[in-house]
């Protein structure tokens, strides 16, 4: 049996004396499209930072591709798109090509230079997100949605098996959000990339994801979207701490 992409056991985390994550058990199998939802301050971003090794966990276990995170080295198997795309230094003079090339930096490795095959891959990734005509434009001159696609291309160029997205649609207009979700669903189905998508937009998530996980300090629910929708609003409101109405988008 292939090991799960991500396997978290008994994970707890606290900032000084404030506990943000408590006894998390969370597994992602290959090929899934997992939507991780939860209210603001529910620990979503903290969980992502722990998974990416940006902060170190003290209690519990995190395994990536079957390897404990402390020993994990294959970081280029994991792509990451943060909500940063709308807060990065827009005055930074870098073309779309240059930004996407950064996705290959660690794969190419120290003391090695980009070769022709790498440049081809960069162009392919830019093509995949439909940004070819902007290849040599400065990213700062693009719209929020276009920038976000560039950052997806940067995450995809190293051909990761696991793509983590932390609220990547913040600052992207509604029409492009739809295209964005479609693009991700397509990557998941046709390229077999496992996705972990963090969002507070429950409604849209349920129509694209294969799994929904609901986080508020604990993982309150992990299952398929239809049973998530059947959860009554009272349960959900308990998790969120305030009344919630799920607006689903049918396709």
């Amino acid at each position: 049996m292939t090991s799960p992409i991500l396997n978290i056991k008994n994970l707890s985390y606290a900032y000084e004396d404030r506990e943000v994550l408590e006894d998390i058990h969370f597994t992602i199998q290959p090929g899934r499209f997992v939507g991780l939802v939860g209210p603001n301050g529910s620990g979503k971003t903290t969980l992502i930072k722990l998974i990416l090794g940006l902060i170190k966990h003290k209690r519990g276990d995190i395994e990536l591709f079957g390897t404990p995170i402390e020993k994990f080295k294959d970081w280029d198997r994991i792509g990451f798109v943060s909500q940063k795309a709308n807060s990065f230094n827009t005055g930074f003079p870098a073309t779309v090509f240059e930004v996407v090339s950064m996705g290959l930096t660690s794969k190419v490795g120290y003391l090695h230079f980009f070769r022709k095959k790498h440049k081809e891959k960069i162009k392919e990734a830019i093509d995949l997100v439909g940004m070819s005509e902007y290849m040599h434009k400065n990213v700062g001159d693009l719209s929020g949605g276009q920038q976000q696609r560039v950052f997806i291309a940067r995450a995809l160029v190293s051909e990761p098996d696991f793509l983590i997205l932390d609220e990547p649609t913040v600052g992207v207009d509604a029409e492009n959000v739809e295209r964005f979700y479609n693009m991700l669903a397509d990557l998941n189905r046709n390229k077999g990339i496992t996705l972990l998508f963090v969002t507070h937009d429950i409604g849209t998530m349920t129509s694209y994801a294969t799994d929904i996980a609901c986080l508020n300090k604990h993982i309150h629910f992990h299952g398929d979207p239809s049973s998530f929708e059947q959860m009554n609003e009272k349960d959900l409101s308990n998790i969120y701490g305030h009344p919630v109405q799920v607006v689903t988008h049918d396709h």
Binding site: L52, G53, L54, K73, W75, D76, I78, F80, S82, K84, F88, F92, A94, E98, V99, S101, M102, G103, T105, S106, V108, Y110, L111, F113, F114, R154
Partner: peptide, 22 residues
């Protein structure tokens, strides 16, 4: 010249550089 790509990446987005194992 040797460390151009790492320096560039670190300048653009330190967090991303760290996540990628730089």
């Amino acid at each position: 010249v040797i460390f151009y790509k790492e320096l560039f990446m670190l300048s653009f987005d330190e967090e991303h550089a760290v996540v990628s194992g730089i």
